[in-house]
């Protein structure tokens, strides 16, 4: 499914993650793309879950001292967990080309988050049809070859499905808790 990584980059990435339980990766062996990608996703999804639970659920649902809103600046509110995730990915894009990630959906409220490559369509459809599973593939974009991994993006709080069901720009209105709403897509260039 994916090539064994030969260069340094993947091991550097994994090192940067500093996941204590992992075996230390040596430069010679390297980590394969899937492992790197899985680890990156673990960090992303854990951070996002912490934000959702300890910030949004605690302050907006339990304590009710603040709301979370798409227009967080104008509404003086918390950023939505999905926005927090997106801002992180934009910050990464400003820092490095070594990997990139995005949050996409077959039913996006904002059309710019609809799949834009054939593999994105395939991956997102796989996630929707196989709950709990990931999807991995390779694709060529802008003359460069990428390892691309897809992870399900789940409705983890009532607010997720509620907002997507009620938003006037949402193409789907029957989301339930635990449903696959889209996918996190991580890309790592394979040749550089």
């Amino acid at each position: 499914m994916y090539d064994k990584f030969k260069g340094l980059k993947a091991s550097v990435l994994a090192g940067a993650l500093a996941v204590g339980a992992m075996q230390p990766a040596t430069a010679e062996e390297g980590l394969d793309f899937q492992t790197v990608s899985d680890l990156l996703h673990l960090v992303m999804s854990s951070d996002r879950t912490v934000y959702t639970r300890m910030i949004v659920n605690r302050l907006a649902v339990e304590e009710k001292v603040i709301t979370a809103s798409e227009h967080f600046e104008d509404d003086k509110a918390l950023v939505l967990p999905a926005q927090m995730f997106r801002f992180g990915s934009e910050m990464v894009a400003e820092e490095t080309d070594a990997f990139s990630y995005s949050l996409l959906s077959l039913w996006p409220i904002n059309k710019q988050n609809a799949p834009s490559t054939p593999l994105e369509i395939e991956g997102l459809e796989y996630l929707a049809e196989n709950p709990g599973e990931n999807f991995y593939g390779e694709e060529e974009l802008g003359g460069e070859k990428y390892f691309t991994a897809f992870y399900p993006d789940i409705s983890v709080a009532e607010a997720c499905s509620k907002c997507h069901n009620e938003h006037k720009d949402s193409p789907r209105t029957d989301f339930k808790g635990g449903d696959v709403m889209g996918g996190v897509v991580i890309r790592i260039p394979m040749d550089s």
Binding site: S89, D97, S100, S102, Q112, S116, E120, L141, V185, P189
Partner: peptide
Amino acid sequence: HPIKKFKNPRMADFW
């Protein structure tokens, strides 16, 4: 339309 939004390789067709 910030630059960072376009750096993602999935935007290659738009480049």
